[in-house]
Design a protein around this nucleic acid. Structure first.
Lengths: 227, 227
DNA sequence: TTAAACACCCAAATTATGTTGATGGAACCA
DNA sequence: TGGTTCCATCAACATAATTTGGGTGTTTAA
């Protein structure tokens, strides 16, 4: 199952054209956007333009080897957080440790096994995406679960806990109607028993605070979030 | 050079006592806090109490193998984001791909090379929370983990141990809300039981000493650091 | 038209947080 | 070792905010 859109941008650096092609082909098949460079100098240039999420560096290359290239990239603030993966024919423990300690995220020995390479890269990106902020964006409304904030057209809106949870629930599936019972179960839990009015009041407060009516009442059924 | 506070919590799971000991010893020397388990069932139990950042799973074990254990952990919401590393004597491409595709963050073949293992784990943690950085700088505030000092606009502020740890935790992910429970687990540990007011008191002391309110209360939820 | 469903406001109940001072224990220093 | 200071915690109270349920008026759909 391939992702529909590019999952990330990768700069592949190696002095052997064959290898660049094989890697590039496989990464593209896996949904990544790739750019290639044939040595360290070219890599730094292209990185500045392409802004990759991950840079794959061969260690032995003319015009600045992989280690030096990595060191130089790490010095530049814009590449401080860029992931780096070393790719090398040197398969000894010492250089692997050195590479990782330099701040690389992975170290893969040649010969390249394309499917394995893709799996490892997927693992790196999976982690990267998880660590990024989890937010729901719906039109002008942004709900940030981590920060526990809601922004509407750039203005932060302070919601109370229950209000936040309720809005989050409705916004999790825009357009879908949530029955009153569903809302009670999800937001208040099965143990707590509260009256029907309680939901109304919270809905009202959300509408009040947002200033716009993004929550539609479906009479006799429940509520839904709509843009 | 040992970090002043543990850089991360690791649960090591293997059925061979020797291996547990070797790994545990090396991780502790590198500054990690470790707990061990001898099979999958024990791993899940201990994970629930210990709340590790990373779980190292041997694949072949009695009482639920590593793959199944990982699958089960991933199903539990509290371990969705926990890092998993497979450790195995199986050194073939197919099972490595399978392991990584299951959501593992790394896959390391036995025999174990301790220094390499530590480097790989450091690489994972580096990405996770940049906790290796000795300094956190946020606006006018500088937190130096090594010197155990906090500076605000150039003035040094003397914080007590718990205050420092609490501030450091909140500042490690600015903007992100930390639940009271998370704070208790991270700063006080799982064994100690302290009252709710204790957190408030420390928060208050930090606010007092800083002179500015960089810590925002999210009622009913927790606290967050904000510039 | 007429119930049912809903919105709105209010005030009470409940819960969360902030503050202060007291206590015991650890660390420090002479 | 004895005294001193600092620290972490707690208890009790103060304050603030959230949540709830009831009363009342309005809208809606049949």
């Amino acid at each position: 199952m391939e992702p529909a859109v590019a999952v990330g941008k990768i700069l592949v650096v190696d002095d052997e054209a064959d290898i660049l092609e094989i890697i590039s082909y496989n990464l593209k098949s896996a949904g990544y956007e790739t750019v290639t460079a044939k040595d360290g100098l070219e890599a730094i240039q292209k990185a500045k333009i392409f802004r990759p999420d991950l840079i794959m560096l061969d260690i032995m290359m003319p015009n600045k080897n992989g280690i030096d290239t990595c060191r130089e990239l790490r010095r530049l603030p814009e590449f401080k957080d860029t992931m780096v993966l070393f790719l090398t024919a040197l398969n000894d423990e010492k250089s692997e440790i050195e590479g990782l300690n330099m701040g690389a995220d992975d170290y893969i020995a040649k010969p390249i096994k394309p499917r394995l390479l893709v799996s490892r890269i997927n693992a790196l990106f999976r982690r990267l995406n998880k660590s990024e902020e989890q937010q729901i964006q719906l039109g002008d409304l942004i709900i940030d679960r981590e920060k526990f904030t809601v922004t509407y057209k750039g203005d932060e809106i302070i919601l109370a806990k229950k209000e936040f949870e309720l809005l989050q629930l409705l916004a999790s599936k825009p357009g879908r109607v949530f029955l009153r019972n569903e809302i009670l179960n999800q937001v208040w839990g099965t143990e707590v028993i509260v009256g029907d009015r309680t939901i109304d009041v919270h809905i009202r407060k959300i509408r009040q605070k947002l200033g716009v009516d993004l929550i539609t009442t479906v009479k006799g059924v429940g509520y839904k979030f709509e843009l």
